[in-house]
Design a protein around this nucleic acid. Structure first.
Length: 156
DNA sequence: GACGTGATTGTTGCC
DNA sequence: GGCAACAATCACGTC
């Protein structure tokens, strides 16, 4: 009797686990979808207010690894061209790496991060200076802007 | 021709 | 602290 009971319990557990996994996968998919939608909206905004001089985020250790992995993946699977497949395979391979194997990638990422911080500091400094200059010249510019706007209105 | 999509993990930056 | 956004990649599809 105990056996059937424990078997039932085990089956129920397995079922519950499967359900949880399924729900997790669905959740992940939804999150990805949401992420993409948000990205799209952000991109629209970016078109208006993007600053091309702003330093880009540094590559993480995973991205450093992925860069290398893409090359080997291409060699192994020259017929697979989509980036999605490489990303998936790369993520899988990354998880299988030991901490020791990941170390050189973390080192490279740390270097990139240091570079990024340096560039970012310079960028922020420049922005502050620009803001100061704008404030100082603001009055003159206002007058110029006004006349420019009037000209634009005339064009329409 | 220009632009969006897909798929991944780690890190950043904001609230 | 938690969570959203973003970093690279490029063939392919859509408009």
């Amino acid at each position: 009797m105990k056996d059937t009971k424990s078997k039932k319990a085990a089956a129920a557990d397995a079922k519950a686990q499967k359900k949880a996994e399924k729900e997790k996968a669905i959740e992940k998919k939804l999150a990805a979808k949401k992420d993409k939608e948000m990205k799209k909206q952000k991109k629209d905004k970016k078109k208006n207010a993007a600053d091309p001089n702003q330093p880009k985020r540094p590559a993480t250790a995973f991205f450093v690894f992925l860069e290398e992995y893409r090359k080997t993946f291409k060699d192994k699977h020259p017929n697979i061209k989509g980036v999605a497949a490489v990303g998936k395979a790369g993520g899988d391979a990354w998880k299988r790496l030991t901490e020791e194997e990941k170390k050189p990638y973390h080192d490279k990422a740390a270097q990139k991060k240091a570079d990024y911080e340096k560039t970012l500091t310079e960028y922020k400094k420049k922005q502050e200076e620009d803001a100061k200059n704008e404030k100082e010249n603001g009055k003159d510019d206002d007058e110029e802007m006004q006349s420019e706007e009037e000209e634009e209105e005339d064009d329409e």
